[in-house]
Nucleic acid binder design. Structure first.
Lengths: 227, 227
DNA sequence: TTCAAATATCACATTTCTATCACATTTTTT
DNA sequence: AAAAAATGTGATAGAAATGTGATATTTGAA
């Protein structure tokens, strides 16, 4: 089942939301402030975050931005007044939503469900150009035609395609692909995987349609976050 | 690159962790006991501390608390058993994390990276005049049109543009661009990079729009810090 | 165990970048 | 104004990074 991180400094509100979410079958973890939230997020990797924007020490918007630096997890923001919307809009409000106080726990649960549905469609299919990636089924199609990928190739493709535009170093890629801590792999192995993936996608390194090489830095899935 | 202080009285463990961290591109300094750690911390100002809690003379928790008196540097604690967690919780575990022994060096490296990511969030997009710099994507656009930069050029442009108005000496620039320490580079190499960057940005040294030369001092990105 | 698929490495070709030089030009100093 | 010092810049050798087919090694299923 989906795991949800609830961040609110008021214990009563936190518990209330937690209770209702649990009743709906979610696994819930809690954080009382921003630092704790960031720590728990990294450790537990929840599927969604319910985030109060009024927090002590570090405010909620800042937390949201920091998380956005390395994750696209959907965030449901709890905001005190409508005026805050301007600041919320400063965020890339793609995968997010917000609820204005005072709210009923039921409303929060409803929004959570809606957000989850939106963010994790039965399979969170990644579509780029003419290829589609089906995470749950570990399948990739190009123009509707299936292409067979191995586990490692698939993970690598997932990583890059989920963050178009972002440059990943070989080391970052290794960290993401190899779950085992002690596994030490030669740098260039990544290149070999890239080669295989490109071959399967029919991509040409000289003029890539999907995966670009960034000399001296790593690889990057083609695409622009700033458009 | 990030500097990490490793504190452990056992030389073998210290060296093992150091080795793995260095392999991941970190600069590492070592301390064998608490006194040394505190001294080195003040002197070297590391970005993160890997701290064994079992230390001779002064124990690790005490060290951590002392450091917390005047710094929020993230600390990764190495703890012997789970029971110690109670004492760790006595600390404000905000920006910190811990690993329970026995641990693999890889796990330590992974935690270090995670902590650093949390503690030093990615730089924001830099916008100056008609150019935008995207650190994560290693991309530069001018009027929305992408311009290809090499790693060195990119780093140099990042450095200058992040501090408009500030003059950087060639030496300062070299320190920022070259991670490897024994790399000694000829002064004038910087000039050559400046030349390349200017060319790509369409900048004219005689009447620069972006990078000014400061005779006898270095280079400066045009602009004012106070606005 | 055996075998095939997946994974990891290697070696060599190719591409791209780096660092430097030499000479021109500009700025400062004398 | 001449000399000295600093900067601008095109060219380039060599270093470094990447592309890739072939090969070794591991894994997992039968």
């Amino acid at each position: 089942m989906k795991k949800i991180l609830v961040v609110d400094d008021e214990e009563n509100i936190r518990n209330l939301i937690t209770l209702y979410l649990q009743k709906s079958g979610f696994e819930v973890i809690q954080a009382a402030d921003g630092e704790e939230a960031l720590a728990l997020f990294e450790k537990e990797k929840p599927h969604l975050i319910v985030l109060d924007l009024m927090l002590p020490y570090i405010d909620g918007i800042t937390i949201a931005k920091r998380i956005r630096n390395y994750s696209n997890v959907p965030i449901l923001m709890l905001t005190a007044r409508a005026e805050e919307n301007d600041r919320i809009k400063g965020l890339e409000l793609g995968a997010d939503d917000y609820v204005v106080k005072p709210f009923s726990p039921r409303e929060v649960v409803a929004r959570v469900k809606s957000l989850l549905r939106r963010s994790y469609p039965d399979e969170q299919i990644i579509k780029v150009k003419d290829i589609k990636i089906y995470p749950k089924e570990m399948r990739v199609t190009k123009n509707g035609k299936e292409i067979a990928f191995t586990v490692k190739e698939f993970k690598l493709l997932m990583l890059l395609s989920a963050h178009p535009g972002k440059v990943f170093s070989r080391e970052q890629i290794m960290d993401a692909i190899y779950t085992d801590y002690d596994e030490v792999v030669f740098d260039r192995t990544i290149d070999a995987y890239i080669k295989n993936i490109r071959k399967k996608l029919g991509d040409n390194p000289k003029n890539p349609e999907y995966i670009e090489s960034v000399y001296g830095a790593g690889y990057r899935f083609k695409g622009d976050k700033n458009k």
